[in-house]
Amino acid sequence: MEIAVLVKPVPDAETRLRPDAGGSGLDPEGVKWVLAGYDESAVEQALLLKESIPGTSVRAISYGPLARAEEVLRFAIALGCDAATSVEQPAGAPDDPLVTAAALHLALSKRAVALVLCGKQAGDDETGLVGPALAEMLGIAEYGVAVNVRWDAASSALTLQQSVEGGLVRVRASLPAVVALQQAWNDPRTAKLPNILKSRKAAIERMPASEVSSAIATVQALAARRLAFRLPPPRTGAKMIEYKSPEEAAERLVRILREEAKVFP
């Protein structure tokens, strides 16, 4: 079967965040774009499934500005994905999860994909909306916050658990489906150096901006408009509790939590 895994370029976790000149978005100057963390888990999960289901191939798909998208696609290939599709973000197209879903829908609607894997959210805008929106566009089931995704060879079925309030829901998934990963079984693997070198030369299928523009035209009216991007006021450092005994530390802390911070249950 064919598995698609959605990979999003996001600013590296160590990026120093600051607003752009207009104050409405992140200043992209000097930002290093890397594969989003949960998406890396999705790639790992896709590769684990590929290893356990004979005849499975994995295609990574990314939507975004061409250079960024291709960089994370090459990373996905270095990790072990078989093929990659880059869906080019048209200039001026808004960064919005519904628009992203529509663009990815274009790439997926042309293929017979049994399973679409993605991270439960990306570490930049953290909306978590692309997976479910895409599933609705495709008219298929979607399983969020998934862990322990397994292929049951005996019954040819995908089983998984969903990490919800208070525990895990065991689910037998109906395919085709979108599965948004909370965690793969393993920590994401590290790409081997020779595979990184090979990935640089791998062919990447491209969906040009011209094609994408018409696919996103209808949802573009729904896209949120960015008004402001702000950094929280810097934390000034902790107020230190002075004490002479552990009991005194406890009493003082509880009093502060109750009277000053007002968070004592």
Binding site: V34, E71, R74, F75, A78, T190, A191, L193, I196, L197, S199, R200
Partner: peptide, 9 residues
């Protein structure tokens, strides 16, 4: 970009 990816790895 190849060198960057080797270094990152």
């Amino acid at each position: 970009s190849e060198q960057t990816s080797l270094r990152d790895m």
